[in-house]
Design a protein around this nucleic acid. Sequence first.
DNA 1: TGACGTGCCTATGGGAGTTAGGTAAAGTCC
DNA 2: GGACTTTACCTAACTCCCATAGGCACGTCA
Lengths: 190, 190
Amino acid sequence: MPRAGLTTDSVVTAAGELADEHGLDGVTLARLAGRLGVRPPSLYAHVDGLPDLRTRLAVRGAEQLAATLQAAAAGLAGSQALSAVAHAYRAYALAHPGSYTALQRTTSNTDEAAEAARRVVAVVLAVLAGYGLDGEPALHATRAIRSALHGFVLLETQHGFGLPLAPDESFTTLVSMLDSGLRGVGGASA
Amino acid sequence: MPRAGLTTDSVVTAAGELADEHGLDGVTLARLAGRLGVRPPSLYAHVDGLPDLRTRLAVRGAEQLAATLQAAAAGLAGSQALSAVAHAYRAYALAHPGSYTALQRTTSNTDEAAEAARRVVAVVLAVLAGYGLDGEPALHATRAIRSALHGFVLLETQHGFGLPLAPDESFTTLVSMLDSGLRGVGGASA
DNA sequence: TGACGTGCCTATGGGAGTTAGGTAAAGTCC
DNA sequence: GGACTTTACCTAACTCCCATAGGCACGTCA
């Protein structure tokens, strides 16, 4: 029997595809092994069990998200930067729902995950500088923005919006609320 | 052997406690049966398996949340109402993390779940009326508010905030951003 | 007091994650 | 090019979970 030629990277990649198709809970070692043409125990040579696999998915997702946001914000400032980052954030989550869920559900904070999270925060902080915010108030505002984007995307991907109302417009409303919210808070403290 | 005297209600209540202690994924029929002094199959007399139990947890959580928000908003308007609702929302999620997770993850939309969701939306819409918002813009704003609260609470309960920064202040920042965001959007369209 | 409904039980099956130990393919050194 | 080492993958087996089927005994009501 020829070897499948797996690596940790190819296993995690396949798991990501599985997560985007069947949801994060649909990622089982049995199904993943089936897709890779291998028996479940063989995966343990590349990944240390299901929790480790989930952590790796989360780290990969965080890194991709951070890179996406950095690229989106490049060369922009103020409202334009905020809007670009927000839409890039949402686009990533919609395109990779499984990875996004994984990245949210991580409890084990590895160094790589922390590093990716730091990059995301850095991008938002750079945007906030355009609103005259820095220091501790900027950190609080970062949390607020992150919360809003995260919540919206989660509700949207998990079909939490009951009403038949265009999500695009709702998202635009959210972004402009954040924009004027930042001007209100920033204007008071800057 | 004396009977345990279970009812559907007592089973769901115990499951809610379990969810708040061990997380929603920690709610297994085996563990639940152990807590109730009963064998796992006995639970099927009161609940139709694990998915049904999760749905019931979600419905109960949604009803409790709606009632909490209604009580918090009573007699208030404008910024005060917004702040009261927001803080009540966060307090409920922090006090009942398991139920809150369940209420978020529901995919099966029963009539009761829809009704509870409708009540939550109604409370927020009433608050928005104080900002001069109604109709479709109010619905979009409702989604925005819900997203922000939901995202914050999720990040907080799942320890998504890496930095050692007081969450209370971050939340206050979020609420005031929403407040000025609503004034910005509301003033433009009302 | 006897029959009935039903709450809870044991027994059983199937599927998932995980570990232990074996086999054969791929790489390495003389 | 042949022998040794490494390692990718396998089968077998264990545990824990959800779920179903069928049986026993408790409580009620005529």
